[in-house]
Design a protein around this nucleic acid. Structure first.
Lengths: 213, 213
DNA sequence: TAGATTGTTAATCGATTAACAATC
DNA sequence: TAGATTGTTAATCGATTAACAATC
């Protein structure tokens, strides 16, 4: 029931999870905030503050047990629960996401693919058939869908969002270049690739300024 | 030579750009911070503060000229300059990015595709042939490359990064799940899709808590 | 001129860092 | 026990919001 934890903290959690996983893979079984600090380039203070938003996972004089902390962060992030995902818009990006196998071990599973393009009908990606978008309502009524990934042009993204929301989907992973207005109980996570590219471009000009006055 | 502008501000700039573009498309030619505030759900104060980091683009009593502001933000983000991109790792994600046409109008152009998989050799995406990675050094010597997009497994991402850096590439668009350590004059923009999905998952649990205590 | 809205300074709020007592 | 390192409070720093004089 922990509420109101700042999004700055949340943004760092998956990164902790990743580092801890690597430590696990390397057979490290304990780590101090000081050592983690060095490898992550974050202050030890921030690490301890971040973790203590969720509970005291460490032990004075010892540090943190890697496996335990890893699993606890996993639970915080909801990775102990299964999440079923449908992908709406099976263009290049939609296909890439559907094919991406690394999501499965984290509990995210593709269960349905939808498009408007009849040429795709019946094709399969990792054994999942591509369905036409008009089959979506029936599908949503008969399957548990936790997340809808929107990988379609922005003009169509809004209606797709409205459609899935009207069938009770509560989470949208939005790759379309629109900001979706959704009710309070729905969550949206945006992945705007061109925004990312523009920030990179900004940093490039800043580091290698041409002749800006 | 504007330096030290906070990354919180930079993170918002592409979004302003997008909203202004939409206003332009709709034939709107002036906008006040108050009106923009309403549609973007940001305070008017923040909008004015953000913009004034770069200069006074508005006019008292009038607001901002949409076309002018749009173009100025474009310049700030470096969109007035051409950026040549190579994609290393032409798997599903690499193909998706290579096919994404929306980057071109922003000045980002794919100029080379590289992979290790011989089966891909000679295939083309949008008229760009896929080359083998051992052709990369020669390519870098003969072509202007501004950005290297790394869309390959994390084990290979580090060596790919080292390789392009040794040939003078100064910007990396990193989709691999590693944090790259790079020299000071190199910029890295990370797109970690699974991090994004984990944040979404966190928000889902927060809004619809199961039986957490 | 009167009204509107910016640019900018000052006030508030929140996030990061530092310090240290608690404790394993 | 002595040493190490956490959890947590206090201090600092930075970002957001509010207010208002400047000015178109």
């Amino acid at each position: 029931m922990q509420n109101g934890i700042s999004s700055a903290v949340i943004r760092r959690m998956p990164r902790y999870y990743r580092y801890l996983e690597e430590l696990l893979d390397n057979g490290v079984d304990r780590i101090s905030s000081g050592d983690l600090s060095k490898s992550m380039h974050i202050t030890a203070s921030q690490i301890r503050q971040d973790l203590n938003n969720f509970g005291g996972f460490g032990q004075q004089g010892y540090g943190y047990n890697v496996k335990y902390l890893h699993d606890e962060i996993g639970k915080i992030l909801g990775l102990d629960q299964r999440h079923n995902i449908i992908v709406i818009g099976v263009g290049n990006l939609g296909q890439a996401i559907s094919n991406y196998v690394n999501f499965d071990p984290l509990g995210f599973h593709m269960v349905g693919l939808f498009d408007v393009n009849p040429a795709l009908k019946g094709k399969e990606i990792r054994d999942i058939p591509i369905r036409m978008i008009d089959e979506l309502p029936e599908f949503l009524e008969n399957h548990q869908v936790d997340i809808a990934a929107l990988t379609l042009p922005k003009e169509k993204a809004k209606e797709a969002a409205d459609l899935v929301l009207s069938f009770g989907v509560k989470a949208i992973w939005n790759f379309a270049l629109v900001d979706l207005d959704v009710p309070d109980d729905v969550v949206v996570e945006n992945v705007h690739l061109s925004d990312s590219l523009m920030r990179l471009s900004y940093d490039i000009s800043r580091k290698n300024p041409k002749e800006d006055s």
